[in-house]
Structure formats: structure tokens, C-alpha cells
Design a protein around this nucleic acid. Structure first.
Length: 359
DNA sequence: GAAACGTGGTG
DNA sequence: TCACCAAGTTT
């Protein structure tokens, strides 16, 4: 005889979840505002990013750009500098584009319906639902990784959450069970539960406020859910990165406006084979710059792992005479180095250079 | 639908 | 060291 499935009582579930959220929720900076613009910022920053990482960025960001118009009018370089180190830099540029559209098309008021808010750059199905429910109290789904994990356990949903189409199943589930009295606390409660109790490994079921509603707990399957297929490993590439110096300046270049680390600054790089020697680097540089680059010396190495690729970098110093620079390159002083948005491996290079005492 | 897109923390 | 993750969106 199989154990009988538990009955899911929607009203009691909502009540238990919302009561728990009210009592146990963390005191986070974006929970102290009702401004849809600031809540929007927090939701963008929190995409694929830990709460503890976001907090200082969020605080600085809303101080720097207190209103939607401050961000709409900001210089992109200043914006990217604020985002430096947070990752996924297109989020920042998309956010600004979205904010500009709200300024121009919606009179500065963040839209309060799914269709309009979803049309904004960088606002996908999750962010739309999060801003709508949290800022405006609209009963809309906001399905992120937490929600899929939590609901896969509570409702015993055994679909692969790594597949894009699976999200729809969870969106429909949320619309079935969301509280219409307090959609904000309901959605945030689901996410907070995922962050604090219903964690990926070793969920704290004995502390869970809704365990009596949980089908997986009832069947002892909480460790088997959610179902999630594995990601594959990243490919590695070898680069030589150059700190080319002239007097008290160093050469930087701005990356292209699309793709990896778009519009961020870096030190000039060459893709190389594993055993490229300084002399060969010097030859390649001479070709690139028409001579005038000397004394290439290796000074450190490091590895940088992106989400989908790995760069193994050998860092070199070099001296330069009069170079004819391509448009995207610039000589910068130590002061300017601090003002430009630099990310990824170039950030490691910068740190190493400053430690070395050059520049 | 798969792949691109960052970074730092954790077991 | 390494896999896996963390409040996803765009192409």
C-alpha cells in the first residue's frame, strides 16, 4: 500500500508562508524603499548574483543615482564604473536603456502592467513579475531559481529546471497559488524560503514553516529535487597581456561595444600558443605597433574563469616610444586608471601592477 | 533552444 | 582543485 499523497491547502500555505516571511525576513536595503525605480535596480543586480555581493553595490548605486532621471542622464563610463566587479555588464547598459525609455515614454513612471514593463530592456519574465508584485502589489508570478527549487519540492514537480520551457510550468503553478491579498510577501517569501531554508543542498526541513504542505518532505524526496541537468566545462585560451609603459602612463584599450565585457577597458592582449616567449611577443608587438616597443619582460601569470570560458594569462611589462595608436587605445595616468571601468583579467593585472609599484 | 554573458563563495 | 552555485536576459 502506497502512502497517500498529501492534500495541498492553498490558503493555509499562503498564510504559513507569509507569516513566516513577516517574522523572519532579512533586513535588506531594497526592502526599505517603496520606489519602483530602486526596486527595479535591486532586481537587476540580484540576477545570478548573491545578496551579500549586491548590498554594497546597491547602496552606492542609489546614492549615486537617487532618481530615475539621474540614471537616465548618467555618462555610460560613470555607470559602468559603478557596476565594476559585479559582472554581467550588459545588465547596467540595459538598465539605463530601460530607464531612459521610462523617462521618455512613460513620464518617468515605471509601468505597472506586465506587457509594458516587459518591453523594457533587460526586463525579462522574472524581473517583470518581481517589480510588479513587490513595487505595485500586483499578483504576478516571479519565477527564479529559488522558486523553481522550492516549488519542485512542495508540489513534487519532476521536470528538469535547466530546460527553458520548464519555467512556464512553474509560472502557471505560481498563478494558481499566489496570494491576492499580499503578492509581494508571497513572492518574496518563496524566494526567502529558498535562500534560508529550502537550500539546494541540505535543506533545513525541520525548520521549514511550510513542511506540512511539502509533498517532497512527505515522501522523503527533498534531496532528490529539483531535477537539474549538468552544465559543461569551460574552454581555456592562452593570452599575453601587456602593461606597455611610456613615462608615467600605461596603455589601455576599450573593448568593443558588444560581447564579453563590452565597453570595459583592458590592457592590450595577444592570443598566444602555450609556449610563446617574450622575444616572440616583442616581435608580434612590433608588427602591431610598427616598432617602438622594447624590453618585454614577463612579470606574473594568472587564470581568470568566466561562466563559459577560461583565460590563462601571462602578464608582461614593456617600454614604448612613439606609437601610432588605434582609436580604441589611450595612454592613461595612474589617476585616470582609477576612473575607468576595468573588469575581468585586466582588473587582476591592474592590482598586480599597483602592487609592483609601476604606474 | 542552446549559448553567451561575470564574479566570488562554498562544500 | 573543482563542480556548483546566485533574486536571468538576450541573441
Amino acid at each position: 500500500m502506497e502512502a497517500t499523497a498529501i492534500e495541498f491547502n492553498k490558503n493555509e500555505f499562503q498564510q504559513d508562508l507569509i507569516r513566516w516571511f513577516a517574522a523572519e525576513k532579512r533586513d535588506l536595503p531594497w526592502r526599505r524603499t517603496a520606489d519602483p525605480y530602486q526596486i527595479w535596480i535591486s532586481e537587476i543586480m540580484l540576477q545570478q548574483t548573491r545578496v551579500d555581493t549586491v548590498i554594497p553595490y546597491y547602496t552606492r548605486f542609489v546614492e549615486k543615482f537617487p532618481t530615475l532621471y539621474d540614471l537616465a542622464e548618467a555618462d555610460e563610463e560613470v555607470l559602468l564604473k559603478q557596476w565594476e566587479g559585479l559582472g554581467y555588464y550588459s545588465r547596467a547598459r540595459n538598465l539605463q536603456a530601460g530607464v531612459q525609455e521610462v523617462a521618455e515614454k512613460y513620464g518617468g513612471i515605471v509601468p505597472s502592467n506586465r506587457k509594458d514593463i516587459s518591453s523594457l530592456k533587460g526586463v525579462g519574465p522574472y524581473t517583470a513579475g518581481a517589480v510588479l508584485s513587490i513595487a505595485y502589489g500586483v499578483p504576478e508570478h516571479a519565477v527564479d531559481g529559488n522558486v523553481m527549487r522550492v516549488l519542485s519540492r512542495i508540489l513534487l514537480i519532476e521536470e528538469d529546471i535547466a530546460k527553458p520551457k520548464t519555467r512556464k510550468i512553474f509560472e502557471e503553478a505560481v498563478m494558481e497559488i499566489i496570494s491576492h491579498e499580499d503578492p509581494s510577501s508571497f513572492n518574496q517569501g518563496l524566494m526567502e524560503l529558498g535562500a534560508l531554508i529550502c537550500t539546494p543542498t541540505s535543506p533545513k526541513c525541520l525548520l521549514c514553516p511550510v513542511r506540512e504542505h511539502c509533498a517532497a518532505f512527505h515522501e522523503g524526496k527533498q534531496h532528490e529535487l529539483p531535477i537539474k541537468t549538468k552544465a559543461k566545462k569551460t574552454k581555456a585560451t592562452q593570452y599575453a597581456m601587456l602593461a606597455i609603459e611610456k613615462e608615467d602612463k600605461v596603455l589601455l584599450e576599450k573593448r568593443p561595444s558588444s560581447g564579453l565585457l563590452a565597453n570595459m577597458w583592458q590592457f592590450p592582449m595577444l592570443e598566444v600558443t602555450a609556449e610563446t616567449l617574450p622575444l616572440e611577443i616583442e616581435e608580434q608587438l612590433s608588427e602591431s605597433f610598427a616598432g617602438e616597443v622594447q624590453s618585454v619582460e614577463k612579470f606574473t601569470s594568472f587564470k581568470h574563469v568566466f561562466s563559459h570560458l577560461t583565460w590563462n594569462v601571462d602578464a608582461y611589462t614593456a617600454k614604448a616610444g612613439n606609437l601610432t595608436l588605434p582609436a580604441q587605445m589611450r595612454w592613461v595616468t595612474a589617476e585616470e586608471l582609477e576612473l575607468l571601468p576595468i573588469a575581468g583579467p585586466a582588473q587582476k593585472m591592474k592590482t598586480a601592477l599597483l602592487q609592483k609599484g609601476d604606474v
